[in-house]
Write a protein that binds this DNA or RNA. Structure first.
Lengths: 142, 142
DNA sequence: TAAAACTTGTTAGTTTACCTTACAAATATA
DNA sequence: TATATTTGTAAGGTAAACTAACAAGTTTTA
C-alpha cells in the first residue's frame, strides 16, 4: 500500500470512529470525551495539577480550568493547595467523584466493547491489541 | 488483555490521534475534517446527493447543507437537478474544486504520513495496514 | 383521486467544546 | 531587586456541530 493511502485511510477511519464514540458518549453520560478523559486521569493519578491534566488531554489550561470548575461545582473533585508552591493546586476525586468513576468506567466503554466482541474475530481482536500502542505512538508525537 | 481495557485504551488512542489530526488540518487548510471528507467523497463519487454525503460523513443533512452552501459560494461544487425526482440535487466538483482536491490530496495527509514514516518500523506499518479495515468495521456499525 | 405521510433539502437559531486575550499571584532568574 | 516565567482563572469569542421549523416534491392509502 502506498504510504499516502495508508495515512489517508487511517485518518478517515479515526475520524469516523471518533465521531461514533463521541455521539455514544453524549448519549450515555452528559460529559464530553475530554471531560471523561480528565476524570479518568484524576482517578488514576491522585493530586495531579491542572496544567498536567491540560497537557495530558491536549487542551489549553484555560479550557481545563473550566472543566475543573464544573467538576468542583458538582462536588466531584477537591483542590488542596501545595505547600512548596502556593500557585499549585493538587486535584483529587471526592468520594462522590470516585463513585461516579466506578459507576461509569464499565458502562462508558461497554458500547465499544460490545462492537469489538460482536463484529471482530479473535484474530482481529489480537491484531487490534497490538496496534493500540502504535496508535498511541502516532498520537504522542509533538 | 481484558476486553474492557482494550476498548478503553482504543478509545483514548483514537481521541488523542483525532485531536492531533484536527489541529493539524486546521493548521494547513482552513477546512474542517468533515469538510475535507466531504470534498473527498464528492471527488470519488460524482453526482452524489446531499443526503448521501450527510450519511457518509455522519452529520445531519442540515449541517451538510451549510457545508455545501460554503463550497458553492467558493465555486468548488455545482448542483444539477435530477430529472426523475425534482427534489434531488446531484453534486459534483467544478474544475476549481477538482484543482483544490488535487492540490490538497497529498499535502493534507503529508503530516500523518511523515509521522508514520519516522516513528514506526516496517513491521508496525504492516500491522497498521492490516488494522485499518478493522477500525472501519468498528466505525461502520450503526 | 384527494388527503395523508414521507422524502429531500433549506434556513434560522442554539449548543457544545473548544480557543484567545487578558489578568492576578507566586516563584525563579538576571 | 527588577524582570521573566509559571500556574491558574475569568471573560468573551468562534467553529462545527445540533434541533426546530418549513417548503416543495413524491409515494402511499383510504
Amino acid at each position: 500500500m502506498p504510504p499516502i493511502k495508508l495515512s489517508s485511510s487511517l485518518r478517515m477511519a479515526v475520524a469516523a470512529l471518533h465521531k461514533g464514540l463521541r455521539k455514544q458518549a453524549s448519549y450515555t453520560s452528559s460529559y464530553s470525551m475530554t471531560e471523561l478523559e480528565t476524570i479518568g486521569f484524576i482517578s488514576r493519578n491522585n493530586d495531579i495539577l491542572a496544567s498536567e491534566l491540560a497537557s495530558l488531554t491536549r487542551i489549553t489550561t484555560q479550557s481545563m480550568s473550566q472543566i475543573l470548575k464544573k467538576f468542583e461545582s458538582q462536588g466531584l473533585i477537591a483542590r488542596t493547595g501545595s505547600s512548596d508552591d502556593k500557585r499549585k493546586m493538587h486535584i483529587s476525586l471526592t468520594p462522590a467523584g470516585e463513585k461516579l468513576v466506578k459507576q461509569n468506567r464499565y458502562e462508558r466503554d461497554a458500547f465499544l466493547q460490545k462492537r469489538i466482541e460482536t463484529l471482530l474475530t479473535d484474530k482481529e481482536v489480537a491484531l487490534l491489541e497490538k496496534v493500540v500502542p502504535i496508535l498511541d505512538k502516532l498520537a504522542a508525537a509533538d
